[in-house]
Nucleic acid binder design. Sequence first.
DNA 1: CAGTGGTCTAGACCACTGG
DNA 2: CAGTGGTCTAGACCACTGC
Lengths: 270, 270
Amino acid sequence: MNIATQPLIDSSAPAPAEVTTVASPAHGLTPAFSPLYQQIKVLILQSLQSGEWKPSAAIPSEMDLAARFKVSQGTVRKAIDELAAENLLVRRQGKGTFVATHAEQHVQYRFLRLFPDDGDLQAEGPAQRQIIDCKRVRAPSEVAKALTIRQTEAVLQVRRVLSFAARPTILEDLWLPGAQFKGLTAERLRAYHGPMYALFETEFGVRMVRAEEKIRAVLPDEDQCALLKIDAQTPLLSVERTAYTYNDVPMELRRGLYLTDTHYYRNALN
Amino acid sequence: MNIATQPLIDSSAPAPAEVTTVASPAHGLTPAFSPLYQQIKVLILQSLQSGEWKPSAAIPSEMDLAARFKVSQGTVRKAIDELAAENLLVRRQGKGTFVATHAEQHVQYRFLRLFPDDGDLQAEGPAQRQIIDCKRVRAPSEVAKALTIRQTEAVLQVRRVLSFAARPTILEDLWLPGAQFKGLTAERLRAYHGPMYALFETEFGVRMVRAEEKIRAVLPDEDQCALLKIDAQTPLLSVERTAYTYNDVPMELRRGLYLTDTHYYRNALN
DNA sequence: CAGTGGTCTAGACCACTGG
DNA sequence: CAGTGGTCTAGACCACTGC
């Protein structure tokens, strides 16, 4: 029996004789073997999604989870290992395992990969942020497609400029599904000090888990020239991002224009 | 005793009573605890570097390695797990564990991240390659710095153009340390059909393990315009790569200029 | 000191590959 | 069928944290 198909805490349910290793599908075709630790992983994921364990909070200890899921500690461990590798959990020896959050300082540059040429992040400090606009609009077709919603649905459209040393360096437009981000306003964005994704977590319960970017070199249009204070011959990096929350659900489309005369986009090929 | 400090196969050496878990440094300061599996990892890495196990060949089974290193299978397993995660080894259930190679098809796009807008890699097929130049020069200062060699030393400088559907799309300049790449010529590059990094493996025993890229948007100079058949107002992606072999030794500096009107650079943020 | 994650072991059994 | 990697267990002990 697949342990994921039965209640795991409800002690009133008839206790199974044993937990088997194989997940046996009802349909029968292609056995689709799924290891126990994968099933545990799914269960932990569900607790994360449901908000049972909030960002930055500790999850139960490995022993507790092993008891709860009726498996050995090693199996829970392997599940947590993978979730930690995916940056959903953070292990801290002697303290516990915690739900990852965008508020942590060292996570900042996982999603913003622009670095100063001289390499001194500390000297540069955090970017100055300027919210240009935040409005509710009907989803443009490209946005609707990227967020897998209908064109009739509302999205929040935000435009902002990031500056380093008072020099405008990044112009970003981003679109968020209206349903999940009710009540997001320019004022609220301005009031929050910290990464935008951290605000999404605490204010809207939306945690961005991973993202994909398409990068191109482009020339700016007139508006963009004005906002970045550059001329029309200055080449810019166009960074088009789709960010996903749990279960690969797209939750943000973002298009950034990066000035790369004093900064560069860093990428590691592993 | 640290198992890495003693010969592991030489049976004439006095056999230690037991293998301890802790690597005890001679100096005494900061115990620097190193788990057994990390030490095993280093030993496996040494066998890879030394060429004991060649690219695409199978390494000994987990049981064999466990016996050789006098540890349990689980410990060897954990070491191999990490090396597989770093793309140095490839596990194949039922068959064995193999030394990763750049000749594998699915590894192609780990280092070349340019994709066609329509998304159909198959339709596009492999790039047509044209070697423009391959010459031996004294290392320019930036190159010497990146490859951590002296400016007096020789490097091989290669220039090539990659085309998709007969359209020049990538212009690359790359520099390789002369010492490791003796005998590399334009003819040899033209004669080899397959990824350049695969050639480096088979012909020169140099395996690229990871790389870092700095990406910018730039405008082309005259030469570049001519080679890519574009005008001076066409923005290009500048991709500056340093590629490393085992032990983080830099082995290649490469500067690519990518035309991004029909292609984009893909990146995943995990 | 107790509680957490981290390492290591030995053994059992399963899934996959190829002769 | 034997040999490989893959999973799971139970138990021991180590390293780190904070009370």
